[in-house]
Design a binder for these strands. Sequence first.
DNA 1: ACCCAGGCATTGG
DNA 2: CCAATGCATGGG
Length: 307
Amino acid sequence: MTERVIKALAPFDFAATARFIRYSEAETVDTFRDQRYRRVLHFNERPTLINVEARGTDARPALSVSLISGRGGNGAATNLAVAAVRRIFSVEHDLTEFRARISRDPFMREIEAAHRGLRLARWPSLFEALVISILGQQISTAVARTLKGRLAERFGETVERGGELFRAFPRAATLAQTNVETLRTLGLSGAKATSIIELARADVDGRLNTGEIERADNGEIIARLSQLRGIGRWTAEWALLLHFGRTDVFPAGDLALRGIITKYYNKGAPLTENEVRDLARRRWGNWSSYAALYFIAALRAGTITFR
DNA sequence: ACCCAGGCATTGG
DNA sequence: CCAATGCATGGG
């Protein structure tokens, strides 16, 4: 079993970021217990369980990554695991500028202090990011979580380790072969089921070429993803944050974010989506994604509300 | 028993 | 360009 250490920039709160990914005890795909984040990822078609732990110090934070299943120890898979973990934990983000920008924003400063070191917790694949956002459209996060769990339980491949079963997020190739009726029995609407199956087929056909999409700018990515059924601006913008790790996006169409801006930055007077977007750009500029992330974190922590 | 929740596609003005 | 409508489930 080989272990690889990844250095990160301070401040970096591994536990807070891992907990943000899970955000519920019912979560089945991402696990975080005894300070160890574990998840099954597919490398070269093979489900592989990876283990991530904090290393280093507060001043010089680091992560250790190891493969603890499959025919681990193989160098290519380890390199892929390291790349995936760098993405999942956004280790490359330098929060210096964000923190400087909010120095005259007491409200955000307080939230940032309460969640210091939290990074954008990102989905390892564009497919997973989009499926999760589609599941989350309109319905409460509790419902979305239930649906994700059922999807994973029905279609996710498993890895057993020490008597414990770990479950992967379903592969596109698997979902491409199911049908709308089956997904409806899991509680998805016809629209969500159709969107997810078409998305899976697009991925299998190479139309969701993430390597190529990744090089495009934000507007182009939104335009391209919006061609796909079930994906509009809201879904595409969250994918920019939660998969691509763009730091300069504020999903102004998000009901919760819009409510927060209205309530805390405009004395409750309603703002349009574009007014919210402009306000975010002026205030947080290229680090607007982190403003969005910290608002959601505060919302989940219960320290703020959006109504 | 309602009512709405971290939208989207479609239809009709 | 804007407004209305259906979609599914679970929690308040």
